[in-house]
Design a binder for these strands. Sequence first.
DNA 1: GCATTAACCACAG
DNA 2: CTGTGGTTAATGC
Length: 226
Amino acid sequence: MNEKSCKLCSNRSSATNFLNDKELKMLEESCVDVKFHKGDVIFRQNALSSNIIFVKSGLVKIHITGPEREQILKIIKGPIYLGIPTTLGDKVNHYSATALMETRVCFISLDSFKDFIASNSDFAYEIITELCKNELGHFDHCVNQVQKQSQGRIAESLCFFAEDIFNELNFSLPLSRQEFGDLTGNSRESVSRILANLNSDGVISLNGKNIEILDMERLRSIRKNG
DNA sequence: GCATTAACCACAG
DNA sequence: CTGTGGTTAATGC
C-alpha cells in the first residue's frame, strides 16, 4: 500500500525478497513510480532504453512493428518485470510497450539494478530464472503460433485471457478486433468471423468486447486441434 | 476437379 | 472501429 517504500510495497517482485533492508533502501532511492493510462506508450521501439521497468499493477501489450505489419508479442499483467531483455540486450528497444488499462510502473535505474546483480547472487538467480521461464514460454507460443490455424490461435488467446489474465470465464477483451488480430496473427476480418462462429456455436457468448466462455471443453479442444 | 482456409477489398452501420 | 459478403490464392484430398 505504501507507495513510497519498497520495503512495504505489496506488489514488489519476488527477487526483491532477497534484498536486505539496506538494499531495499537503495532501490527505493533509485526508483520512480509512474502511472500510465490506457493507450499510453511506456517505451517505444527504436528509442534508447536506459531503465529497468517493473510493472506493479495493470496490463501491458508488448508489440513490435514487423516488416509487414504490427505484431503483438505478448500481453503481460503486473506484478512483473518489463523489458529486461531490451534494456540489457541492446542500446535501443527492439519492441514497444503500451498500457492496455490503468497501469502502475516503477522505473529503476540501471546502475542500481546492476549493483544488485553483482552483489547479491540470490537476487540475480531469481531474475535469471524469470528470464528463463519467459524464454520457454516464448518457444511454446512460437510453435503454437506457427503450426495452429486461425481458430486454434484465437481459442488459445481466449483461454489465455480467461485463465492467466482475468481468472474469470467472463471478461471484457482489452483489445480492439484489429489488435486481437495482431496478437493472434489473423486479419481483423478473420477475428470477427471466428468470434461470431464461436458465438453461434455456443462455445462463447459474445457481446462487443464482452466475452463469456460457455463451453471450456470445446474451446480447449479447438485450441488443441484447430 | 472440389472443398477448405484465410487474406484482401468494399461497403454499411 | 466492426461486421458481412464477394473474391481470390494456396493447399489438400
